[in-house]
Design a protein around this nucleic acid. Structure first.
Length: 482
DNA sequence: ATGTTC
C-alpha cells in the first residue's frame, strides 16, 4: 500500500482496487512522521482503505492523528456517505456509542484543592459508581429509561439533574431527535437500567485538572478560563452496556439485511446497509437512543461532582462557577450538510473516535461561542495533558469539521497489561503529583500512559493543519479510573 | 468500549 506525502502533515493513499473492491475515494491521513510510524504498526491504514470502498462515500476517508485499529473502521476515523443512499455502518460509530467528554470549570485554584485531593477523590469515587459492571445510584424503571433515551438531556433537566445552560453548551443540546426506544431490545434496556450515572471502565475517567498553559487568552476568557492553576473537571464516559448492546443488536440486524440485499464488503466487520433501507433507519434511531443515554450519563455524573464540590467548599455551583464549558461526542453518526467542490451535499458523517470541530459562525454553535468556534476537547490518557481547542474553517475542508478525540492507543490492552506493572504506573503518576483512585489495578496497567500516543503531538498536528486552534492545556491533579 | 467468548 503506497502512502504518499502530499502536504505538511497530510498523507494520501490513492484509490486502487482492494480485495476486488474499488476504493471510491482517496484516504487522507493527518499525521507527522512520529504518528504515521505508529499508525503503520497496526491495521489502521488497511481498515480506512476498506472504508473508502463503501458505496456512497464522498470526497475522502480520513484517519486523524490519533488513529488506531478498531472494529471494522479505525478509531480516529471519519467518513461521510451520501445521506440519501450511501452506506450506514454501525462499525463506523463503534460499540461505545456517544462516548464523549465534557469540561467543567471552577474558580478554584490548585492551592485550594491540592491538600485535600485524596479526600475529594474518595468522595467523588463514593458518589459516582465506577468500574466494570458498575451500577448507578438512581432507581429508574423501564418507562423512565425509555423517557430518558427518547428525550436526551431534556430528561435530566426535567428531573433536576441539569441546568438550562448545560444543555446549551452540549453538542446537539444533548438530544438526538431520531431516538425511538420502541426499537431498542429489552436486553439493551435491561443492561442499561442500572447504569445511568456510572463511569464505567477502560479509558473512561474523571479528572480534577489544573490549567497548565493558555495559548489564546481572548478565546480562553470567553470560555471562562482565566489563568494558570485554575481548576477544571473533565468527565469521559459513554453509554455503557446500553450502547454496547445496541451496537451488538444492530450489527446482527445489518448483517442479516446484507444477506437479504446481496451487499458485499471487503471486511465482515464493515457491515453496512444503504441509508434508504429500513434497517439503516432502525439503526440510526437506536443509535440516537444510545447517544441520549450517553448525554444523560455524563450529566448525572456532572450533577454529583457538583454536589461533592458544594459540600467540600461550602459554596453553591454559581459561587464556584462550576459551569459546563462544553461537551463533545466521540462516537456518533450525524446527518450534516457539507460542501464538496462548491456544492452543498447532505452526508451521514460517521465519527468514530473523532471530535466535531465546527468553525466560527456555524449554525450548530451556541450563541455565546459563535465568534470563537466550537470548543473541541481532546483528552490525553491518565497522567498526560488534555486540550481545549476551537474548530476552524479548515476543518470543513479537510475533515468534515472534525478533529482527533484523544491520544489514541499504540498498544492493545493485553500488551499494556503485560508491559506495565500497575504499581509502577501508580508510582510514576504520584511522582508527577497525580493522585489516582481506580476501581482495579488491571485498568491502571491497561491504561498506562505508555500504551498511548503522545497527546501533545496528536493535538499539534490538528493545530498545525489549521483544523483547530489550541486554546488551553490542562494537566491532572487527581484521576478516578473505572 | 463491554456481564472482555455466539
Amino acid at each position: 500500500m503506497k502512502v504518499e506525502k502530499i502536504d505538511d502533515n497530510i498523507y494520501e493513499i490513492s484509490p486502487h482496487k482492494k480485495n476486488n473492491f474499488d476504493m471510491k475515494v482517496p484516504v487522507h491521513i493527518y499525521a507527522n512522521d512520529y504518528i504515521l510510524n505508529k499508525i503503520k504498526q497496526d491495521r489502521t491504514l488497511d481498515q480506512i482503505s476498506n472504508v473508502a470502498t463503501l458505496k456512497g462515500i464522498r470526497k475522502h476517508a480520513i484517519a486523524l492523528s490519533d488513529a488506531h485499529q478498531g472494529y471494522g473502521f479505525c478509531i480516529g476515523g471519519v467518513a461521510g456517505t451520501d445521506a440519501s443512499d450511501g452506506m450506514v455502518s454501525p462499525g463506523g460509530v463503534g460499540y461505545d456509542i456517544n462516548c464523549g467528554v465534557r469540561l467543567l470549570r471552577t474558580n478554584l485554584y490548585e492551592s485550594d484543592v491540592r491538600k485535600i485531593i485524596p479526600d475529594l477523590l474518595n468522595s467523588i469515587y463514593r458518589n459516582i459508581p465506577s468500574g466494570l459492571g458498575s451500577e448507578g445510584k438512581i432507581n429508574i424503571n423501564y418507562t423512565d429509561l425509555e423517557n430518558l433515551v427518547d428525550n436526551g438531556l431534556n430528561w435530566a433537566l426535567e428531573n433536576g439533574y441539569a441546568l438550562e445552560k448545560d444543555l446549551e453548551h452540549c453538542e446537539e443540546n444533548g438530544f438526538l431527535k431520531d431516538a425511538d426506544s420502541s426499537l431498542v431490545s429489552k436486553k439493551a434496556k435491561q443492561r442499561g437500567l442500572g447504569q445511568v450515572g456510572s463511569l464505567g471502565s477502560g479509558n473512561h475517567f474523571l479528572e480534577i485538572q489544573k490549567v497548565d498553559k493558555i495559548y489564546n487568552k481572548d478565546i480562553a476568557k470567553k470560555l471562562g478560563i482565566h489563568e494558570e492553576k485554575q481548576v477544571t473537571v473533565m468527565v469521559h464516559t459513554g453509554s455503557r452496556a446500553f450502547g454496547h448492546q445496541v451496537c451488538t443488536d444492530s450489527l446482527r440486524m445489518v448483517e442479516r439485511a446484507m444477506n437479504k440485499y446481496g451487499i458485499k464488503v471487503p471486511d465482515r466487520e464493515l457491515a453496512c446497509v444503504p441509508a434508504d433501507t429500513k434497517e439503516a433507519q432502525n439503526y440510526l434511531s437506536q443509535m440516537a437512543c444510545a447517544a441520549n443515554f450517553g448525554f444523560n450519563n455524563r450529566q448525572l455524573i456532572t450533577h454529583w461532582i457538583r454536589e461533592v464540590f458544594e459540600n467540600f467548599f461550602k459554596k453553591d455551583v454559581d459561587e464556584l462557577d462550576m459551569n459546563l464549558i462544553y461537551g463533545v461526542c466521540h462516537n456518533i453518526l450525524k446527518k450534516e450538510e457539507h460542501q464538496i467542490n462548491g456544492k452543498k451535499v447532505k452526508l451521514n458523517i460517521h465519527r468514530k473516535g473523532a471530535t466535531r470541530a465546527f468553525p466560527p459562525n456555524h449554525p450548530e454553535i451556541p450563541q455565546d461561542y459563535k465568534s470563537i468556534g466550537q470548543p473541541a476537547l481532546i483528552p490525553g490518557t491518565m497522567g498526560s495533558a488534555s486540550y481545549l481547542c476551537v474548530g476552524k474553517q479548515k476543518a470543513m475542508d479537510l475533515s468534515f469539521g472534525s478533529t482527533a478525540h484523544g491520544a489514541g492507543r499504540v498498544m492493545s490492552r493485553r500488551a499494556a497489561d503485560r508491559k506495565y506493572p500497575a504499581r509502577n504506573v501508580m508510582d510514576d503518576l504520584e511522582s508527577k503529583g497525580i493522585y489516582i483512585k481506580a476501581a482495579s489495578m488491571k485498568v491502571i496497567a491497561e491504561e498506562a500512559p505508555g500504551a498511548y500516543k503522545d497527546v501533545d503531538a496528536v493535538v499539534q498536528v490538528s493545530h498545525d493543519l489549521g483544523i483547530v486552534e489550541k486554546v488551553a492545556r490542562f494537566v491532572p491533579i487527581g484521576v478516578v479510573k473505572g
